[in-house]
Amino acid sequence: MVNHEGNTTVTLAVQNLSVRFGTRAILDSIAAEIQPGSITVLIGPNGAGKSTLLSGFAGHLADYSGLITIDGNSIGSFTAKQLAARRAVMLQSDNLVFEFSASDVIRMGILPHANATDEEQIEVIESLADRCGIHHLLHQSILSLSGGEKQRVHFCRCLAQIWCNTRLGASQYLMLDEPTSSQDIAGELRILNLVKEKSSEGVGVLLVLHDLNIAAHFGDTFYLLKNGRITARGEAGDVLIESTLSEVYETPVKIETRDQRIRINTF
């Protein structure tokens, strides 16, 4: 895609992004980007601004200064519908109070512009649910599910959105705020392997993660945030460094590398 300056850029980027809440800076002059086919991971202590930055990439910040662009075009020039056709987002909140079935919730990810027939919808919902390990829950009320099961249903909804958008051809982004916070080890692996698969299909992925070992294993690019600023950025070797992490988390961190695998420990 070519932007108005004539540069060919296929990326989702923020430049000089600042967000203030009263006098407190939530984000302070952030520059970051998500590339198609790559997994970008935001790490950092609680309150560092990771979720706010994710909101910025998702186009949901009401009040900010700086520039957020998709393929070089300002995100403000996209309607909600156009944005939904380019990216799927999973937040940590769970707001449902009425008894929608898991399948109803996943179906919400299939947007009208995909022009999917009922048959196609059922098929894609079933195959995605199967891969997320929630096929047996499809017809149950979402309110009856455990936190981890709900999380997988919402993740599956995002995959459904990506599925119908991929039919339209434009580059896709998938943004997940702590997608595995309620998962057991198997669920965590299942979700992140699916994320990896999407990224290898060309989807640009943004993850907010707390588990540094998981981040190290699945991430391609890392942004380490603290107090609304980027402390370190780059590949694992540039960011996951004992001294940097120890300082940012204010906790002694030990890193071992064995068989080219990074192990990050706090004790």
Binding site: K81, F98, L111
Partner: peptide, 21 residues
């Protein structure tokens, strides 16, 4: 109706699904 369904997920979520909330 469809927008109201999506609003059940939360306002941010509905926006992410293309609803002009």
């Amino acid at each position: 109706a469809e927008a109201l369904d999506k609003l059940q997920l939360g306002e941010a979520e509905a926006f992410h699904l293309g609803v002009d909330v």
